[in-house]
Amino acid sequence: MKKYKITVYDEKTGEKHTIEIEMSEEELEELAKKLAEKHNVKVRIEKV
């Protein structure tokens, strides 16, 4: 498992949230996809 920083940005409201999380790359990609689809936000992932 690796550490990642996830930034979620909502273009409508301008809200931006960043968290650090430790998980596998596959789980992370699935999480990012679900966030983007369900909440209509942009998701950026960076390795820490």
Results as ranks from 00 to 15, higher is better:
Met1His: 09
Met1Leu: 13
Met1Cys: 09
Met1Glu: 03
Met1Asn: 07
Met1Asp: 04
Met1Gln: 08
Met1Thr: 10
Met1Pro: 06
Lys2Leu: 12
Lys2Trp: 15
Lys2Asp: 08
Lys2Val: 13
Lys3Glu: 01
Lys3Leu: 09
Lys3Asp: 00
Lys3Gln: 05
Tyr4Gln: 00
Tyr4Pro: 00
Tyr4Arg: 01
Tyr4Ile: 01
Tyr4Gly: 00
Tyr4Val: 02
Tyr4His: 01
Tyr4Asn: 00
Tyr4Thr: 00
Tyr4Ala: 00
Lys5Ile: 10
Lys5Trp: 06
Lys5Ala: 04
Lys5Met: 07
Ile6Tyr: 02
Ile6Asp: 00
Ile6Gln: 00
Ile6Thr: 00
Ile6Arg: 00
Ile6Lys: 00
Ile6Gly: 00
Thr7Phe: 09
Thr7Met: 05
Thr7Asp: 02
Thr7Glu: 05
Thr7Gln: 03
Val8Tyr: 12
Val8Gly: 00
Val8Asp: 00
Val8Cys: 12
Tyr9Asp: 02
Tyr9Asn: 01
Tyr9Ile: 09
Tyr9Thr: 07
Tyr9Pro: 00
Asp10Trp: 10
Asp10Leu: 04
Asp10Ser: 05
Asp10Cys: 14
Asp10Lys: 03
Asp10Phe: 11
Asp10Glu: 03
Asp10Gly: 01
Glu11Leu: 14
Glu11Val: 13
Glu11Tyr: 14
Glu11Cys: 15
Glu11Ser: 08
Glu11Asp: 07
Lys12Ala: 12
Lys12Met: 11
Lys12Val: 12
Lys12Asn: 11
Lys12Glu: 10
Thr13Cys: 04
Thr13Phe: 03
Thr13His: 03
Thr13Tyr: 02
Thr13Trp: 03
Thr13Glu: 02
Thr13Leu: 03
Gly14Arg: 04
Gly14Pro: 00
Gly14Leu: 04
Gly14Cys: 07
Gly14Asn: 04
Glu15Tyr: 14
Glu15Ala: 09
Glu15Val: 09
Glu15Arg: 10
Lys16Pro: 04
Lys16Phe: 14
Lys16Tyr: 15
Lys16Glu: 14
Lys16Asn: 08
Lys16Ile: 14
Lys16Leu: 14
Lys16Cys: 13
Lys16Thr: 15
His17Gly: 03
His17Phe: 15
His17Arg: 08
His17Ser: 08
His17Val: 08
His17Lys: 07
His17Tyr: 15
His17Pro: 00
Thr18Asp: 03
Thr18Ser: 07
Thr18Arg: 03
Thr18Val: 13
Thr18Glu: 07
Thr18Leu: 06
Thr18Ile: 12
Thr18Lys: 03
Thr18Gly: 02
Ile19Arg: 03
Glu20His: 10
Glu20Tyr: 15
Glu20Met: 12
Glu20Ile: 14
Glu20Arg: 05
Glu20Phe: 15
Glu20Val: 14
Ile21Asn: 01
Ile21Trp: 05
Ile21Met: 09
Ile21Val: 13
Ile21Ser: 03
Ile21Gln: 04
Ile21Tyr: 05
Ile21Pro: 00
Ile21Leu: 12
Glu22Ala: 06
Glu22Trp: 14
Glu22Pro: 01
Glu22Ile: 11
Glu22Asn: 06
Glu22Gln: 06
Glu22Leu: 10
Met23Asn: 01
Met23Ala: 13
Met23Glu: 01
Met23Phe: 05
Met23Thr: 09
Ser24Gln: 08
Ser24Trp: 11
Ser24Arg: 11
Ser24Lys: 08
Ser24Leu: 13
Glu25Thr: 07
Glu25Gln: 10
Glu25Val: 08
Glu25Ser: 07
Glu25Trp: 10
Glu26Phe: 10
Glu26Val: 12
Glu26Lys: 09
Glu26His: 12
Glu27Cys: 05
Glu27Arg: 07
Glu27Tyr: 05
Glu27Lys: 08
Glu27Ala: 11
Glu27Asp: 12
Glu27Thr: 09
Glu27Trp: 05
Glu27Ile: 05
Leu28Pro: 01
Leu28Arg: 02
Leu28Met: 15
Leu28Gln: 03
Leu28His: 04
Leu28Ala: 11
Glu29Arg: 13
Glu29Cys: 15
Glu29Gln: 13
Glu29Trp: 15
Glu29His: 13
Glu29Gly: 09
Glu29Tyr: 15
Glu29Phe: 14
Glu30Tyr: 12
Glu30Cys: 07
Glu30Ile: 10
Glu30Pro: 04
Glu30Thr: 13
Glu30His: 10
Leu31His: 04
Leu31Asp: 00
Leu31Trp: 14
Leu31Met: 09
Leu31Lys: 02
Ala32Val: 14
Ala32Leu: 15
Ala32Trp: 15
Ala32Pro: 03
Ala32Asn: 05
Ala32Gln: 10
Ala32Arg: 13
Ala32Gly: 06
Ala32Thr: 12
Ala32Cys: 14
Ala32Lys: 12
Lys33Arg: 11
Lys33Glu: 06
Lys33Asp: 04
Lys33Val: 08
Lys33Trp: 04
Lys33Cys: 12
Lys33Phe: 06
Lys33Ser: 09
Lys34Leu: 11
Lys34Ile: 10
Lys34Ala: 10
Lys34Thr: 11
Lys34Ser: 09
Leu35Gln: 01
Leu35Cys: 09
Leu35Ser: 01
Leu35Asn: 01
Leu35Asp: 00
Ala36Tyr: 12
Ala36Leu: 12
Ala36His: 09
Ala36Lys: 11
Ala36Gln: 10
Ala36Cys: 11
Ala36Ile: 09
Ala36Asp: 04
Ala36Trp: 13
Ala36Val: 08
Ala36Arg: 14
Ala36Glu: 08
Glu37His: 09
Glu37Asn: 11
Glu37Met: 13
Glu37Ile: 08
Glu37Phe: 06
Glu37Leu: 11
Lys38Thr: 08
Lys38Phe: 11
Lys38Trp: 08
His39Pro: 15
His39Val: 11
His39Lys: 14
His39Asn: 09
His39Arg: 10
His39Asp: 10
Asn40Thr: 06
Asn40Ala: 07
Asn40Met: 08
Asn40Cys: 10
Asn40Ser: 08
Asn40Lys: 06
Asn40Gln: 08
Asn40Pro: 04
Asn40Gly: 14
Asn40Phe: 06
Val41Thr: 10
Val41Phe: 11
Val41Tyr: 08
Lys42Glu: 08
Lys42Ala: 07
Lys42Val: 14
Lys42His: 07
Lys42Trp: 01
Lys42Ile: 15
Lys42Thr: 13
Val43Ala: 05
Val43Ile: 12
Val43Lys: 00
Val43Phe: 03
Val43Ser: 02
Val43Pro: 02
Val43Arg: 00
Arg44His: 15
Arg44Gln: 11
Arg44Ile: 15
Arg44Asn: 08
Arg44Trp: 13
Ile45Ser: 01
Ile45Lys: 01
Ile45Trp: 05
Ile45Cys: 04
Ile45Gly: 01
Ile45Met: 02
Glu46Lys: 04
Glu46Trp: 01
Glu46Gln: 06
Glu46Leu: 02
Glu46Met: 02
Glu46Thr: 07
Lys47Tyr: 09
Lys47Asn: 11
Lys47Ser: 13
Lys47Ile: 15
Lys47Phe: 12
Lys47His: 15
Lys47Thr: 15
Lys47Leu: 15
Val48His: 05
Val48Glu: 05
Val48Asn: 03
Val48Cys: 07
Val48Pro: 04
